[in-house]
């Protein structure tokens, strides 16, 4: 079997979804870990985002990480494009639908709504990338202030950007609510995607399916919850830059 045949069969397309999905899950671990550095301000009032700014600086400082960043974009675009193609192809497999829908019998709503949840995450990502990735990688000269810590080397003050976005008197609350909705969409998407991707890749032993399902539930609650706490903490002033 040729590689092209392998990846373009109905099962192969699902492998692509599962591989890219798991890759994006591994990215979420890095992302949530780096961003959780803002909570250093909760235990050390003089931190003011220093730990986070240093971590963010590190994530932009080496070629290796910048190349991985390109890999991340390739992965996410592949996941989105393949996801939409599968969604539309699958929908087209039943030209004439049923008069009475099955509803959620035998299958929870979120398992059937991965396309919708993915679209909500995509909309959120557009907002999110324009808030932080674009300023820190492209338009930093105009949009980011600089800060230097004890070694005197200036670095982007991405933390102040976060405070500026979520503490904005006009739009702050709107962004916080949209970010929370984004995290909700992510949680439901992960709740199905995490375990489903492992099972798509052939995990079928009962004991491993149990592990994967358990881990999936934990991951889908913990990671989006930590993400959601970030805008909330800044909005309510628990985490501040002064």
């Amino acid at each position: 079997m040729k590689w092209s045949e392998f990846f373009t069969s109905s099962v192969g397309k699902k492998f692509v979804m599962a591989f890219t999905g798991l890759f994006l899950i591994s990215f979420l671990i890095v992302h949530v870990g780096i961003n959780a550095c803002i909570f250093a301000d909760l235990v050390d009032d003089t931190d003011n985002g220093e730990m986070f700014n240093k971590a963010a600086h590190f994530m932009g400082s080496s070629y290796l990480i910048r190349i991985m960043e390109i890999g991340l974009f390739v992965g996410i675009i592949a996941h989105i494009v393949q996801g939409y193609m599968l969604e539309f192809q699958n929908r087209a497999r039943r030209k004439q639908g049923y008069a009475v829908s099955m509803g959620s019998q035998g299958s929870a709503w979120y398992k059937k709504s991965m396309g919708l949840l993915g679209t909500l995450i995509l909309l959120f990502l557009i907002i999110h990338i324009s808030h932080f990735w674009v300023p820190s990688r492209i338009t930093y000269a105009e949009t980011l202030s600089e800060v230097s810590y004890y070694n005197g080397k200036p670095m982007h003050d991405v933390f102040s950007k976060m405070v500026e976005v979520f503490k904005s008197p006009t739009w702050g609350l709107v962004w916080v609510i949209l970010y929370i909705l984004g995290c909700f969409s992510l949680a439901w998407h992960l709740l199905h995607g995490f375990q489903s991707s492992f099972r798509t890749l052939g995990v079928h032993n009962k004991k491993w399916v149990g592990v994967v399902k358990g881990l999936g539930v934990a991951f889908s609650i913990i990671v989006p919850l930590i993400f959601a706490l970030m805008p909330v903490s800044i909005y309510f002033g628990w985490v501040t830059n002064n």
Partner: peptide, 23 residues
């Protein structure tokens, strides 16, 4: 179509074939 593991098939199968088989 392609499988998205909604498991609706298992719920209606008269012979209770498990989705484990799909994995």
């Amino acid at each position: 179509g392609a499988c998205t593991f909604t498991e609706a098939c298992e719920a209606v199968c008269p012979k209770e074939i498990s989705v484990t088989n799909i994995s």
